[in-house]
Design a protein around this nucleic acid. Structure first.
Lengths: 336, 336
DNA sequence: TGAGTTTACGAAAACGATTAAGTAAACACC
DNA sequence: GGTGTTTACTTAATCGTTTTCGTAAACTCA
């Protein structure tokens, strides 16, 4: 509202001096600086972000790429929580968060164009439908600082939830409870699924478990119906698994219904595990044994890393932070 | 990337002409306009949002005020879905969405200051902890176009979910199924709760139902534990209700656990209803009878209304849109 | 005291767009 | 053909900052 010029006028100095005083530049007298700052405060001054962005070519704004699809994306508590901590940490560093999408207004821009239009200082890619989407790779190959969550782009920063360790801990725990016939309903074919699947097989190998092919079924993240279908398949096998691992806590609900309507009880007749450790998992009875992903840390590390990339001026900062998962032992796995 | 000047140079015209051609101004020749537009496209031109904002004093950005608290807010599917449609509709109108918060960076700004700093063209208040927070009222009394969701500020636009009608439909339905002893666990003391509570009582009156005081208990939105506690109270009453209405679908989970661990079955021993109609409600077995709030419509109406307020230049646009709720009949209410 | 250095400030250009006002050419019209 | 009106452009100012460069005053020191 008040501008630098008005402050300059009020203080009897030039606009340049005001700007410098406000930015703690070295060549301003201590008393003048103080006077200016006082005036700025009392006149309710805040810098005009647009003017500053125009001049400095820095918007103090970071773009956030979130899946466009409605079924997953924002509705998924995992992502909501990541977004929340991402936003808070970004703000702590002085950045605002703006959603990036294609096709804003009438014109259709690509993700990259949208970022340029808004002069985003950096971008966090939290989740997209397809990481090989040309528009996504275009963005990843641009000169905009970028951090991806749960994905690795060449030469780019990434924050990864340690799905491999999480899955290993889960399988080992289930094994330690005496289970040998362990089934795994995995998510749709994404990078995360690949990691969990690989970790599942490797851990079973280490434990000397032979897992029959029928025990590993494709489901889908956040889709109870897919888990329901897969659960039906598993329950109808001649040799039923004693424990089923689900793609995620939410989609487990589909399996839960299926198990109950088959007249079976959890965990007495069959044991189950989720993944994610969202609030829901600890509200269900029996409490779900699951793997908690540290959403707060994923989000805040991503923001911090991006801020560092922006401020260091190094567009390409191939840092990689791996955030451990945490096994949550509930009551859904029975010792046998 | 490419600027207007570069296009001007390439086309052999002045920057002003380029600007006008790109903005479909009247005083540009048809052929020149075409030439300019072609050049702009081929040179990958996109306007510099900062420069434009500086000059026009319009940022094409709307601020979004979302609760700071973590327990509800973004993690609640209701708000996630509202946010999602809000964002999509805003983008359709050419606006980006930026989160507004206090205390960005080191400085601590108020919500209003944050909006001014970012030169937001308008603000949507989706949910806050406390609508009487001085910072919120300051914003509501400012000259920034504003639309609130599920709240009414004097002289401001608002989009309201018809909680009154939703609750009435629900109670009438439950009544029509033969229930007379209907309990209501309501949410914490918010505007929404007040509406539902009032509608509950009025509808019961209309139906000639006398609801004992013990049947109306305070719970909390999105908090299964509160619903669990309230459910315990209700189940221990000498005269148990035959149907319990919960604050929302999610918090019902707490009640569900309590009912099951009391050895009761839904809906044979006791009927239950939720509110919200989130995905979860239709995944549970039995499917929950609930009231769906049209989140997509709430979000998109809010964006559309705000866009209109901005574009009409009328800061104060006391429109009020009421979005009806929809009764979803599940299997959780038994005919008695 | 005079030359060199430091300190504290100001003047002015620039970022990339928009827009009011000005102008030259083309056209209309009797 | 002169006058008036369109049409199609250009010039230049402006939005609110930042930043480079310049400079006057003050200080240092032999």
């Amino acid at each position: 509202m008040a501008t630098i010029k008005e402050i300059a006028l009020a203080c009897g100095v030039s606009a340049a001096t005001v700007s410098k005083a406000l930015n703690n530049a070295s060549d301003v007298g201590a008393d003048t600086a103080q006077r200016v700052r006082n005036a700025a405060r009392s006149m309710g001054y805040f810098p005009n972000a647009a003017a500053r962005a125009l001049k400095t070519n820095r918007s103090h704004n970071i773009g956030l790429l979130f899946a466009d699809a409605t079924n997953s994306g924002l509705a998924h508590e995992f992502f909501s929580l990541v977004l929340n901590s991402l936003k808070e940490e970004a703000e702590r560093h002085g950045y605002d968060v703006t959603f990036i999408s294609r096709d804003i207004g009438l014109t259709n821009m690509s993700y990259l164009e949208h970022c340029r239009y808004r002069r985003c200082d950096g971008v966090v890619i939290a989740t997209v439908l397809d990481w090989t989407d040309p528009q996504v790779t275009e963005l990843a190959q641009s000169d905009i600082p970028l951090v991806a969550i749960d994905y690795v782009f060449d030469n780019r920063g990434s924050v990864l939830s340690d799905n491999v360790q999480g899955m290993r801990d889960l399988v080992k725990y289930v094994y330690s409870m005496g289970h040998r016939k362990i089934a795994f309903i995995h998510g749709d074919r994404t990078a995360v699924t690949k990691m969990r699947l690989a970790s599942f097989h490797r851990t079973c190998d280490e434990l000397g478990l032979k897992i029959p092919d029928e025990y590993v079924i494709e489901g889908a993240f956040h889709e109870p119906s897919a888990s329901a279908r897969a659960t039906r398949e598993l329950l109808s096998l001649p040799e039923r698994p004693t424990c089923i691992l689900y793609p995620d806590d939410y989609s487990f609900l589909g399996g839960m219904n299926e198990i109950e309507s088959a007249g079976l009880s959890i965990p007495d007749d069959i044991s189950v595990c989720g993944f994610d450790g969202i609030h829901l998992s600890q509200v269900l009875r029996p409490r779900l044994t699951t793997v908690r992903q540290k959403t707060e840390q994923l989000g805040s590390e991503a923001s911090a890393m991006l801020a560092e990339a922006i401020e260091s001026g190094k567009t390409f900062l191939p840092h990689r932070i791996v955030v451990p998962c945490e096994l949550i032992v509930g009551e859904s796995v029975k010792r046998i």
